[in-house]
Write a protein that binds this DNA or RNA. Structure first.
Lengths: 343, 343
DNA sequence: TCAAAAAATGTAAGCGCTTACATTGACTTT
DNA sequence: AAAGTCAATGTAAGCGCTTACATTTTTTGA
């Protein structure tokens, strides 16, 4: 307790202010219960000592942490980084702190993080997508921790969510592709396993093909984790095919960026030789050359709304799932297929 | 305590295993102190009850949190997102959790977050850059919280850091610019106030000009926060000048991307009419058209090393600041100035 | 003016852990 | 066989807060 790094406690403040610890606690948590005079006394003691409450003690005693956890696949993807940034800002407004963990798209890691965050007493959890072991949902229910699913929206579940329906979101895009005359379609997707968003996008494409009288099984599908390099590799595989597709639709913009890059390296004209589309509309999309045709997703808004919803859920309020709308962004990488121009 | 959402405590485990709470605690924290038999008993009780320690109680009692805090300007910038992702992964390996806060480049917010994170008992703090009120450093010292500065490296301070010297990092780039014959140079920087990294880059440029016999005051400097739009606006201002520069050097790649975009919109050829350079070498850089000449920074490695260093600092080990090296990436956006080709 | 109600404050029992210290046996030594 | 070691475990005192309940003070109303 040398004067140099002495950390004051509630009791120190109480002594200095000449009141009980309960009063100090009240002064900090519900000031209106105190008389003006006492409040002033306490406040100046707080200021003088530079007191800051010990968070752990606070949480332990009050049984709430004012902390929410978010488990995202990776921060190293603009869409999550951006959404999380907004999420965190709004959380700050609500007086809550964020703890982030990333699962690297691995269910086992996700489970582990969920347990850790729960042990830390997270008041609520933000999860990405629906797909996970029911065991996890049971655990959450058992622990009574509210959780919000983001980046996805489904109606056939009681899990609250904020996001969009991926199947529906990709629909205008695939319909445009088909309308332009494409019949030889490829899709570069993230691995569909454990990833409902990726899966729903593919399903959306297949359904539209069916509706248009095309054989959904004719879709050339490649699954590969999101990254520029993987996008390049997948694209290369596609154009090496006997009968290369006239359009390479991509599960997200990062993959699409890889495809564009590879096309350039191979001196294949986009979109004249082959069209390319993305999903997400990150900055990259409008910076690419030509600009990427993609589906715009309101990541920032989603993060903000997620924070508000989770805040309410933590306060035991009933919250309805919220569907956000996405928007087709037609830009330069999509045109009619090479074989049937002017068809 | 209904069977449904009953959360077991240490005491419950102890009772079930027929031992004292101390034994259970030891079993979890230093198992080798126990006899094989007891350990087994305890472990199975733990498993049976699905026990997980309450983090807050743990921290309160043990006076350490196994948590580190990071305060970054924004997650919404690939460099920090990437660095942080690596930081967090490595932290996970060390059994520590990360709490992130973002300051939005505002010193007041940074201070506030530092206080919050300290109150939460963060065992250590990751900070970006050196520039901050001495009051903050005093606070940290007083509270005895180890802190590591990243994304910068300076020798004339006792604050431990991991990063690179921004002045030095930009040197090969500006020297190349000058060597190519550019004499009318512009620099689009982030606001230099409270941002040593931005400032050092400008200083580096000025110093090189001086060394080359150019007047450093002739540097056309624009300060604007990092964003594509701001890059565009700044670039527009530059080319509207009576005597537009032959090269627009940018404080980072995001600004540079904006500049390239604007150049395209104005149909000004890059690099023939005007050269553009960036800093950071984010994915964008090699995706742009033409590819951006920039300075490569090892963000991922920095994040990882930062975690290791901070881990050691928390364990009271002495740690030396570490300098990382950057590398010039000459690509397509830089060439000789229009006025003096073949000079 | 005085009892009753309301407001302000104090008392003290935890919250779920860790850990210094005490205790208990089982083994060594001599 | 007594004394000393040492490993394994138990006891219990906190860690710094919150909050139910008790107590005191002030306000109110008739």
């Amino acid at each position: 307790m040398s004067q140099s790094n002495f950390i004051p406690t509630l009791a120190d403040v109480a002594k200095k202010a000449g009141v009980s610890t309960a009063t100090v606690s009240r002064c900090l948590n519900s000031p209106d219960q105190l008389s003006q005079a006492t409040r002033k006394k306490v406040m100046s003691a707080v200021a003088e000592l530079g007191y800051a409450p010990n968070f752990n003690a606070q949480s332990l005693a009050a049984r709430r942490t004012n902390t929410v956890g978010a488990i995202i696949p990776t921060m190293d993807n603009a869409i999550f980084a951006r959404g999380l940034q907004a999420f965190q800002e709004e959380l700050g407004n609500l007086g809550k702190t964020l703890i982030v963990a990333s699962s690297s798209y691995r269910p086992d890691l996700e489970l582990e993080h969920i347990k850790t965050l729960t042990a830390r007493g997270a008041d609520g959890l933000l999860l990405i997508g629906y797909d996970r072991n029911p065991e996890i949902y049971n655990f959450l229910k058992q622990r009574d921790v509210p959780s919000l699913v983001a980046w996805a929206y489904q109606t056939d579940t009681d899990q609250t969510s904020v996001g969009f329906n991926n199947e529906k979101a990709i629909r205008p895009l695939i319909e445009e592709v088909i309308a332009l005359g494409h019949r030889n379609i490829a899709f570069i997707s993230a691995p569909k396993k454990n990833n409902d968003r990726a899966r729903d996008r593919v399903t959306g494409v297949r359904m539209a093909m069916q509706r248009a009288g095309l054989d959904p099984r004719s879709l050339k599908l490649i699954e590969t984790p999101y990254s520029i390099e993987n996008g390049q590799a997948a694209f290369q595989k596609l154009v090496a095919l006997d009968c290369p597709p006239t359009v390479a639709m991509c599960g997200n913009d990062v993959l699409a960026a890889g495809a564009i890059k590879q096309a350039k390296e191979m001196a294949l004209s986009v979109p004249d030789y082959i069209s390319i589309t993305g999903f997400d509309d990150i900055e990259l999309a409008s910076l690419a050359e030509p600009q990427l045709t993609t589906v715009h997703v309101p990541h920032k808004a989603m993060g903000k709304i997620a924070a508000q919803m989770l805040g309410k859920m933590i306060d035991q309020q009933i919250v309805e799932s919220q569907e956000l709308s996405t928007e087709l962004r037609l830009r330069g990488t999509l045109t009619t297929p090479r074989a049937c121009k002017l068809k």
